[in-house]
């Protein structure tokens, strides 16, 4: 595909921000090029006919009973950092 199909690198940076994924400049450039090809390919979805969708689904509930869950120690075991039995994260804003 030609370069004219490439996505604007600024748009790649914007989406990466929404997705909370930092990218380096080389990745931004590569993705801008590739996303152009891939999104152009997705355009074929414009021609899909309307089809009746009948979902054959039933809700599944369980009884509201207390079950054993993870212990606090098990839940924290994979956390990179903990403090006083809690997950330790970065400051919010």
């Amino acid at each position: 595909m030609s370069d004219t199909d490439a996505v604007d690198p600024e748009e790649v940076r914007h989406v990466a921000g929404l997705a909370r994924v930092d990218l380096d400049e080389a990745e931004v450039e590569r993705f801008a090029e590739q996303f152009g090809d891939i999104l152009t390919y997705f355009d074929a979805l414009d021609d899909v006919p309307a089809v009746d969708q009948e979902a054959d689904l039933a809700n599944v509930f369980r009884a509201d009973e207390v079950h054993e869950g993870l212990t606090q120690e098990e839940a924290l075991r994979n956390a990179p950092e903990t403090e006083d039995g809690r997950f330790k994260g970065p400051r919010v804003g």
Binding site: V12, V15, A16, G17, L18, A19, R20, V21, D22, L23, D24, E27, F31, Q34, F35, I38, L39, G89, P90, R91, V92, G93
Partner: peptide, 30 residues
């Protein structure tokens, strides 16, 4: 812990995910 939640979150994912995973997360977000 450098920066706020969004910045550290984005850094963890830059370092932890490979290129194909990033590509799919970004295209899915789009």
């Amino acid at each position: 812990h450098e920066g706020d939640w969004n910045e550290t979150f984005a850094r963890a994912r830059e370092q932890g995910f490979g290129e194909e995973v990033k590509r799919r997360i970004l295209l899915g977000t789009y």
